[in-house]
């Protein structure tokens, strides 16, 4: 392959990738720009830089004043953090068991997990609510219990997806690795922790990110269980603000930015680990 041809195809590759990147970045920039724009100007002129007269901090001040962001961040991280950890631990074990073992009822369990992934949350939420109310978790007005009331169904809701994804990756781990470890005298649990987890590290990180994001962004479950202000999590807060804002698009934009920044941080931080996982954990042989 000659060098020239190669560089042309490289350039085309970068153009294609760059174009798509533009579509994913621009909306962010657009929202950020408009969060600094004075009220009323968004509908007439949303594309220019908000400079001079058009610039304002007011949207952020209003958002911060109107809502208790600090508390909501704390609630969101408690909920989503717990959900992520529990999902990764449980789903990893279950996926490993389902992939490597042959036992009666295995395909039944697999079908159940598949089906579980399709259960719309709206169809399970009411029975879950009744059950949790009976157990004295939901609807007590107690902040910590309410957070738990969100965590439990969210774990169940994310588990199926996580199991399916992890199964896909554990399947692609060459079984020879495990066999040689077994010959070296490792127990099954040791194999799981020393072979499988390192090999599928990146997949675990992927699953963790999705579990975190879905939990963080899941407005529906939040709005069902978290009613009182001190329990409110961040997505519920955004919804609250946007319903109050009416056509105050500047306020909406600033709230969106405030809500998105923490997840972006978490994502970018975890992203580093993924890459580490990708390179260090790559399976040789």
């Amino acid at each position: 392959m000659n060098r020239k041809k190669r560089s042309i195809s490289q350039t085309l590759t970068y153009i294609a990738l760059g174009l798509w990147a533009l579509t994913t970045i621009y909306p962010f920039i657009w929202v950020i720009l408009n969060s600094f724009r004075k009220k009323g100007l968004i509908l007439t002129d949303s594309f220019s830089l908000p400079l001079g007269d058009a610039f304002t901090w007011e949207n952020y001040l209003t958002a911060w004043q109107r809502a208790d962001f600090k508390n909501a961040y704390l609630n969101s991280f408690l909920i989503s953090g717990t959900v992520t950890v529990v999902v990764v631990v449980l789903a990893g074990l279950a996926a490993y068991g389902l992939v490597r073992y042959r036992f009666p009822g295995r395909s039944l369990l697999y079908s159940l997990v598949m089906a579980g992934m399709m259960f719309p949350v709206f169809s399970t939420i009411i029975p879950v609510f009744r059950m949790e109310a009976m157990m004295g978790i939901a609807g007590t007005g107690n902040r910590w219990l309410s957070l738990l009331a969100v965590i439990l169904p969210q774990i169940a809701g994310n588990l199926c997806f996580a199991i399916i994804i992890l199964m896909g990756f554990i399947q692609s781990v060459p079984i020879e690795l495990e066999e040689s470890a077994y010959l070296d005298g490792c127990s099954v649990l040791q194999i799981y922790f020393h072979i499988i987890i390192p090999a599928a590290k990146s997949s675990f990180a992927t699953v963790a990110i999705f579990a975190f994001l879905w939990s963080y962004n899941d407005l529906f479950t939040q709005s069902f269980f978290l009613r009182y202000p001190q329990e409110r999590a961040i997505t519920g807060l955004l919804n609250e603000i946007s319903s109050q804002a009416g056509v105050n698009y500047g306020l909406m934009a600033s709230s969106v930015v405030l809500v998105v920044i923490p997840v972006l941080l978490v994502y970018v931080l975890l992203q580093k680990h993924i890459v580490k996982g990708l390179t260090a954990g790559a399976i040789k042989g």
Binding site: L90, A94, L98, L109, M131, C160
Partner: peptide
């Protein structure tokens, strides 16, 4: 491997 995850699923997904 299986019991913890499926207990969760049973209670909060399958039963509902």
């Amino acid at each position: 491997f299986l019991v913890p995850a499926f207990l969760f699923l049973a209670a909060f997904l399958f039963y509902p």
